[in-house]
Computed example of a mutant assay.
Amino acid sequence: MNNSITLKIKKVNPDAIIPQFAHEGDAGMDLFSVDDLDINPGECKLIKTGITIELPRNTEAQVRPRSGLALKHQITVLNTPGTIDEGYRGEIGVILINHGKESFSVKKGMKIAQMVIKPVLTVKIQEVQELTDSERGTGGFGSTGF
């Protein structure tokens, strides 16, 4: 079965690296920085990738953290997962935050995040006066125990 779709990518910075999968079968492709900058402890910064994309119809791109940066340096994507909508044509940026105790240097060409392409369902909004009951009901935070 062929689940392949085409993602169109345009470089808007000559230093940009086209996203790539590290291994066959990976869900996420690596995104690379075109910036050289430092992120101090507790600080967040927008890191540019130097690319724009054209997503296939009925898809979104999710920007997710890299586990190695999180484990080794406490660097993560602030609004994870960041959503890139199908119609967006601007440069892809990644908001990184430093939860560590030391400054972190982002270097040009560094892998900074992952991008996963996911299908999007189109839903119709219907306002109603009542919702059907469920077993869970209104049980929220901590309702299933600790």
Rank of each mutant, 00 (worst) to 15 (best):
91 E>P: 00
73 H>P: 01
114 Q>E: 13
47 I>F: 08
17 I>P: 08
19 P>Q: 13
10 K>M: 12
30 D>K: 10
43 E>A: 02
38 D>H: 07
84 I>M: 07
49 T>C: 12
100 G>H: 03
145 G>E: 05
56 P>V: 04
63 V>I: 15
116 V>S: 00
143 S>Q: 09
89 R>P: 13
55 L>P: 10
31 L>R: 06
116 V>Q: 04
45 K>I: 02
121 L>W: 01
136 R>T: 07
34 V>N: 09
28 G>E: 11
9 I>M: 14
36 D>G: 01
122 T>V: 14
127 E>K: 15
57 R>W: 00
38 D>S: 15
107 K>W: 00
111 K>F: 00
95 I>Q: 06
96 L>E: 07
81 P>L: 06
85 D>G: 05
134 S>C: 03
32 F>L: 11
140 G>V: 11
53 I>N: 04
61 A>S: 13
111 K>C: 03
80 T>K: 02
1 M>P: 12
131 L>D: 05
12 V>W: 12
83 T>F: 04
12 V>N: 14
12 V>A: 05
104 F>C: 03
117 I>C: 06
79 N>Q: 11
142 G>V: 04
93 G>Y: 02
76 T>K: 09
27 A>H: 01
99 H>P: 01
20 Q>A: 15
89 R>K: 15
35 D>L: 06
108 K>T: 09
139 G>D: 12
80 T>S: 15
69 L>I: 08
127 E>P: 02
124 K>A: 13
44 C>T: 08
2 N>Y: 14
104 F>G: 01
39 I>V: 09
95 I>E: 03
105 S>V: 00
17 I>Q: 14
9 I>R: 15
138 T>R: 08
85 D>R: 02
139 G>M: 11
31 L>M: 06
80 T>A: 15
108 K>G: 00
71 L>A: 14
53 I>V: 14
57 R>V: 10
35 D>Y: 02
119 P>F: 02
14 P>Q: 13
107 K>H: 12
61 A>I: 10
116 V>L: 09
59 T>Q: 10
43 E>I: 03
82 G>S: 12
37 L>P: 04
49 T>S: 08
73 H>L: 00
112 I>D: 07
136 R>Q: 11
20 Q>H: 13
38 D>W: 07
84 I>W: 03
122 T>H: 13
69 L>P: 04
142 G>L: 04
143 S>C: 09
125 I>A: 01
134 S>R: 03
84 I>R: 09
74 Q>H: 12
12 V>Y: 12
85 D>A: 03
32 F>Y: 15
132 T>E: 14
46 L>E: 06
55 L>D: 13
140 G>E: 11
19 P>A: 05
67 S>Q: 09
105 S>E: 06
89 R>G: 10
126 Q>A: 05
131 L>S: 04
123 V>P: 00
77 V>M: 07
29 M>E: 14
27 A>D: 08
105 S>A: 11
74 Q>L: 13
17 I>V: 15
21 F>H: 15
